[in-house]
Design a protein around this nucleic acid. Structure first.
Lengths: 92, 92
DNA sequence: TAGGTATTTAGACAAATATCTAATTATTTC
DNA sequence: GAAATAATTAGATATTTGTCTAAATACCTA
């Protein structure tokens, strides 16, 4: 929970997740979308991977990053505990 | 969104929210649940109030804090954008 | 009004974090 | 094998943040 919030607490990392929502992309493609240096983006990708919000797959020189939403269900559960009057078994 | 994540990115503040989930409490009551000094808790409460995650009401010398979940719906919406296959109109 | 209680404000400080440049590793291609 | 490309690692630095103690403010009560 702590690690998840910590990882999501950065606008660049959240923007990366939103990018990957569309489709998997290589580190370079992701970096192109931002003004930060490649090492900076690489670092953000590393943190996202550590938090298991993305997975990475190396093919030759390219590393493709893919969104992994399973961990976010944790966050969803945490959120829903504050909405006790609702059906928490709703199709999420 | 940024402010919301920033505010939630602290285990003490999240624990305060969980405390207030049960019932409103005064600053002193909240502080009793933690090992931190009262000024530290007061500061956390201030940040929670700024993020509109809680409201405060002063009655005499006591300041009572109450959970305000309306802002969290923003977070919920953000989360659900990553779950496109689901019914986002579910009863939340 | 004096003393006590509840809470916040002010100011300092250590730890965490986001960023950068330079260097390194790994891979492809000529 | 040398050069080029993709990506990461290493190390430095400025900013942000969570915490503390001390002081201030506000309120209550005798």
């Amino acid at each position: 929970m702590n690690a998840l919030f910590k990882t999501l607490n950065d606008p660049t990392r959240r923007a990366i997740l939103e990018l990957l929502r569309e489709q998997p992309r290589t580190a370079g493609e992701i970096a192109e979308h931002f003004q930060f240096s490649k090492p900076t983006i690489s670092h953000h990708l590393d943190l996202l991977r550590q938090a298991e919000l993305v997975t990475s797959d190396k093919q030759g020189q390219f590393v493709t990053y893919t969104l992994n939403m399973t961990v976010m269900d944790e966050l969803l559960s945490w959120l829903l505990q504050f909405k006790p009057s609702n059906d928490t078994s709703a199709n999420l």
